[in-house]
């Protein structure tokens, strides 16, 4: 019964010619900067790729002999298993950060300013403590004489509980490191969602949980994606946390690359391990981005 006669027409803001000129200006401004970025970001990647194809010839760091041997080594089962473990830990700790971080981010984004400021401060403070010190902290908590072990023994469990040197310990410590990386972009994204939209959902019969899942999560998707990317890319490249908390069995790609550079002086193998890791990371990131829908329709 209503007419749609009142549809307002949208008029394009600028003509095609203006757009061309703007494009030219942008190229002039951004061009040198782009070249600079390419030089400082592209050159190291290029060198890394070049080294990864060179034959290791000690005591020189690398030689000018071309070889695929490094990639054969980097993709043998021993290293593939390690890559899978690396991806698994990075993904699990990212997911754990989402689960812990989302409610926290929501709370901070919807808190009065002074509460939010204090919360943010508490959240960011651990970033100022090195991961080495934080790992030592986890040794105190998770160790055989640590808080958890003592509590478990007080409850009647037999002997010291061994939590250190497990994937759980590494994932837990990484989740703690990742939390601010996850929460900060989420807070920024949730703050931009009008409170009215939540109220609208509630007035339409959404329970608080449903408001969160149906409204907050899809509308803060950009923050979620950047938080996950930050956590995941940090997660696949960590060295200190698995070295100190993972023991012999939970070593990750960063540990292997590091020791190939620092201990074995085998830069070509280190470079190819790093490149395989980078490719796996790019593939999993692309897969994750491709899987998450951009808009949803009436089938929510």
């Amino acid at each position: 019964m209503m007419s749609s006669a009142s549809v307002e027409q949208r008029i394009p803001a600028s003509s095609a010619r203006q757009e061309r000129r703007a494009g030219l200006n942008l190229a002039l401004i951004a061009g040198p900067y782009g070249l600079f970025l390419l030089a400082i970001l592209g050159a190291p990647v290029f060198i890394l790729v070049a080294i990864s194809f060179s034959k290791h010839a000690p005591p020189a760091m690398w030689s000018s002999i071309l070889s695929l041997e490094n990639y054969q080594r980097a993709t043998e089962p021993f290293y593939l298993e390690m890559f899978v473990r690396t991806l698994r830990i990075a993904i699990l700790s990212t997911v754990a950060s989402v689960i812990v971080g989302y409610p926290l981010a929501y709370f901070l984004a919807r808190s009065p300013r002074n509460v939010a400021t204090i919360g943010m401060f508490l959240l960011v403070t651990p970033l100022m403590v090195s991961t080495v010190i934080r790992s030592f902290g986890w040794i105190i908590i998770l160790g055989r004489n640590g808080l958890i072990s003592q509590a478990a023994q007080a409850l009647g469990f037999e002997g010291p509980v061994r939590l250190l040197y497990t994937e759980f310990a590494v994932t837990l410590a990484l989740t703690q490191i990742f939390l601010p990386l996850m929460v900060l972009p989420l807070v920024a994204a949730i703050e931009r969602i009008p409170v009215r939209v939540e109220e609208a959902a509630a007035s339409l019969g959404s329970s608080p949980l449903s408001v969160f899942l149906q409204v907050i999560v899809p509308l803060s998707r950009a923050g979620l994606v950047s938080g996950c990317l930050l956590c995941f890319t940090t997660g696949i490249s960590v060295v200190v946390t698995p070295a100190l908390l993972g023991g012999r069995s939970v070593r990750m790609a960063g540990n292997f690359v590091y020791e190939q550079v620092v201990t074995a002086f085998d830069w070509p193998l280190a470079a190819s391990l790093a490149n395989v890791l980078a490719i796996l990371a790019l593939l999993s990131t692309a897969a994750a981005l491709g899987l998450s829908p951009k808009t949803s329709s009436g089938r929510s």
Binding site: F136, N145, Y165, A243
Partner: peptide, 24 residues
């Protein structure tokens, strides 16, 4: 020693100090 007797890998001197201190 490492696999069967679950010896702990130590990564540096500070780490060693901490492990002795904590009774690990």
């Amino acid at each position: 020693l490492v696999r069967e007797q679950q010896a702990v890998m130590i990564e540096n001197s500070d780490h060693t100090a901490r492990l002795f201190e904590q009774g690990e």
